[in-house]
Simulated assay, not measured.
Amino acid sequence: DMGYDEKDILNLDVERISQIISEVMRGNLSRVHFHALGFYLLALKGDYDLESQKKALAFAALAAAQRAMDGEINLERFKYMLNISEKYDYKEWEKEGVHFILFPTKVVPSPKITVGLGDTISSLGFVLG
């Protein structure tokens, strides 16, 4: 809780969420990961390899979807996901010195597990990026 109206976040208003993140990053933050049902938003300030960041987001999103489907991260399927196509769908923009990358996530219709998926997507995106 940082004094912002939570309805903007609950409504998944990406424009307003990115504005809030820009305001928060005016301090010493150089990286913010934000995930919600249907998308993963990464905000970066400074010198980062953007292609590496995009691949990390794609991998994290696929790993979380695979975990939701199977209830665990299966090493064989995980190896398959390492081969991420160069043509993944994302949006990218810059605002107030902050670079944003928005990556859609797969919503699994009948997940076997949901607990910890946010940790899965954020930790993999952070560590691999």
Rank of each mutant, 00 (worst) to 15 (best):
D1C: 05
M2D: 11
Y4S: 06
D5G: 06
E6R: 13
K7E: 07
K7P: 00
D8P: 01
N11L: 06
N11T: 05
N11W: 03
N11S: 11
N11I: 03
N11D: 11
L12K: 12
D13K: 14
D13M: 10
D13I: 12
V14M: 08
V14G: 04
V14L: 12
E15A: 05
S18A: 12
S18W: 03
I20C: 02
I21F: 02
I21P: 01
S22G: 13
E23R: 13
E23W: 07
E23F: 08
M25P: 01
M25Y: 01
R26W: 00
R26T: 01
G27D: 10
L29E: 05
S30A: 10
V32C: 02
H33F: 10
H33K: 06
H33C: 05
F34N: 03
A36K: 12
G38I: 05
G38M: 05
F39I: 03
Y40G: 00
L41I: 02
L41G: 00
L42E: 00
A43V: 10
A43D: 07
A43Q: 07
A43F: 07
L44Q: 03
K45T: 01
K45S: 00
Y48G: 08
Y48K: 13
Y48Q: 11
D49I: 09
L50T: 12
L50S: 09
L50P: 03
E51S: 12
S52I: 10
Q53D: 08
Q53F: 07
K54N: 01
K55M: 06
K55A: 04
A56P: 00
L57R: 04
A58R: 05
A58P: 02
A58Q: 05
A58F: 03
F59V: 02
F59D: 00
A60V: 02
A60C: 04
A61F: 07
L62F: 07
L62N: 11
L62V: 05
A65I: 03
Q66E: 15
R67Y: 00
R67F: 01
R67S: 02
A68F: 02
A68I: 03
E72L: 10
E72I: 08
E72P: 01
N74L: 06
L75D: 09
E76I: 11
F78P: 09
F78Y: 15
F78R: 15
K79P: 01
M81I: 06
L82W: 07
N83S: 12
E86C: 03
K87C: 01
K87D: 07
Y88H: 09
Y88P: 01
Y88W: 06
D89M: 09
K91H: 11
E92D: 11
E94D: 14
E94R: 14
K95P: 10
K95Q: 15
K95W: 14
E96D: 15
H99K: 15
H99D: 10
H99R: 15
H99N: 15
I101G: 03
I101M: 08
I101L: 14
I101R: 06
L102C: 04
F103R: 07
F103V: 11
T105Y: 11
T105E: 12
K106L: 14
V107E: 10
V108Y: 01
V108N: 02
P109S: 12
S110E: 13
S110K: 13
K112T: 04
I113T: 15
T114Q: 13
V115F: 06
V115R: 09
L117K: 00
G118S: 13
G118H: 13
S123M: 12
F126Q: 10
F126K: 13
F126H: 14
F126V: 13
G129M: 07
G129F: 05
